[in-house]
Design a protein around this nucleic acid. Structure first.
Lengths: 254, 254
DNA sequence: CGGGATTTTGAGCAGTGTCAAAATAGGTGG
DNA sequence: CCACCTATTTTGACACTGCTCAAAATCCCG
């Protein structure tokens, strides 16, 4: 996570802010790892910005794919919907993250993307982005990395859904959310969850009642304090322990 | 899935075979959607081929990332391993598919990749591939599509693990495997599974005993015939029905 | 301040996991 | 080529996690 393309130069956050001000991403999003000149090209590729209110859609399943979206502020959920209406949320996205990567291959959105709160997006028309990636070597590499990272994140979720107990899943989620908040400059222990218990259940593969009971239990055990969607993490170390109490399973063989 | 980059030209399978013969991929792998000249460049990027026996590793978790691998023949499993030894298989890969996409971002392999049977691979050094993708527009687009597709596949698995019952998962797996076999030119109803019941359980998030019981049940119900790893699908339509008997869950809201 | 949505809590049950053991398959050496 | 040994698969009994249904409490928005 700290190594880089040989040619890519890392520039300071203030510089990034200046160059990326047009999309107010505060130097997060794609910009990381690109030079200043490259970022100006990138700014040229940004078509427009959109502000969505809570509950509005970034995309609906089946929509034609034309652009990726970078979250400037706010948050979203990505909902995969089964034939019969079963919902699986495959990701919650925070500022600086890229939406729509799963739509490139079929040129259609395979999922609904919904704003969890008031959310600002930068629209990055994909054709222009691809053309730019041919000019700017660092950008191509950056895009590969971002897509690879998305694969990785989903693999972590697969591990959670396939092999972890309910309490392990919620603990893992809280730690992950905490880390991402910290990387955005917020407190890692004072969380304001933008999603409902239902959403959390649809993400973790649990019933909303189970999620709610676990919050109560974690609170009784002194791990966290719960006030609706406001969560205070009292003991990160113990949460990490909870994460690892899987019942074990045999190792890889052919 | 049938639309393409405006500039990309689709060439015939025999032509592909000729151009790709060096890696015996029979025109599957990356080549799809690239012109003949582009494929020659691609051939130049192939460093070498490897033959693995059953149980040998393509990569181990933590290995430094240098190359992607295309499967020429055989099959692999990709195993995510939790801190305490819990295993989640995140993918089974068949000929023509690309391994290692999740290793690009951290420049390390996050998972073990193991051959399920004798398997031939083409090694594609990633730096060379990236350089080539800057020269060959179709290749960059192709790589984006392949990575996007990987994200999509994992999202389908997430839906299975998070929202489907055991029998729905196994039915969905059989249908998916059937479709991929068909795309490789094999029978969609006569399957030879290269993986153990244990592997299947580690993929579907089930105990191996549950997988075994389901095979028996499906057989009793006349859906399939089971002879160890040799599976005959008798009724694809009914398998599809089984797939969709989820107990439903509320739709998306903010 | 009122009303719908969300969250919490309870009780009972079903689907899967766990443990255990028998049956079968597959590979190896004599 | 057969016999043996091991790994894999099947089957059974039972326990437990997490789901379902239900209702009360709380929150949030207009």
């Amino acid at each position: 996570m700290t190594s880089h393309d040989p040619g890519a130069k890392i520039i300071s956050i203030p510089t990034l802010k200046a160059a990326c001000q047009e999309c107010s991403l505060n130097g997060i999003c794609l910009s990381l790892g690109l030079g200043e000149a490259d970022m100006k090209s990138l700014a040229g590729a940004i078509k427009s910005r959109r502000r969505l209110k809570k509950g509005e859609y970034v995309s609906r399943m089946g929509d034609p794919f034309r652009a990726l979206y970078a979250i400037s502020s706010g948050s979203t959920k990505t909902c995969e919907i089964a034939a019969d209406g079963g919902v699986q949320i495959t990701a919650f996205h925070l500022p600086g993250e890229l939406l729509g990567l799963d739509a490139i291959s079929a040129e259609r959105y395979p999922s609904d993307i919904v704003a969890l709160e008031t959310t600002d997006l930068c629209e990055l028309p994909f054709e222009r982005l691809e053309a730019l990636a041919l000019e700017v070597p660092g950008l191509q590499h950056q895009l590969f990395r971002i897509m690879s990272r998305e694969v990785l994140e989903e693999e972590k979720l697969l591990l959670m859904l396939g092999r972890m107990s309910a309490e392990e899943r919620l603990a893992a989620f809280l730690l992950n959310f905490s880390k991402r908040h910290q990387q955005l400059g917020s407190s890692p222990t004072e969380l304001r969850l933008p999603m409902s218990r239902q959403d959390l259940g649809d993400y973790l593969g649990l019933a909303l009642e189970t999620v709610s009971r676990l919050f109560s239990r974690f609170q009784e055990e002194g791990l966290i304090r719960v006030q609706g969607r406001q969560i205070k993490l009292h003991n990160l170390a113990k949460l990490r322990e909870v994460t690892q109490h899987l019942p074990a399973s045999p190792a890889a063989r052919a």
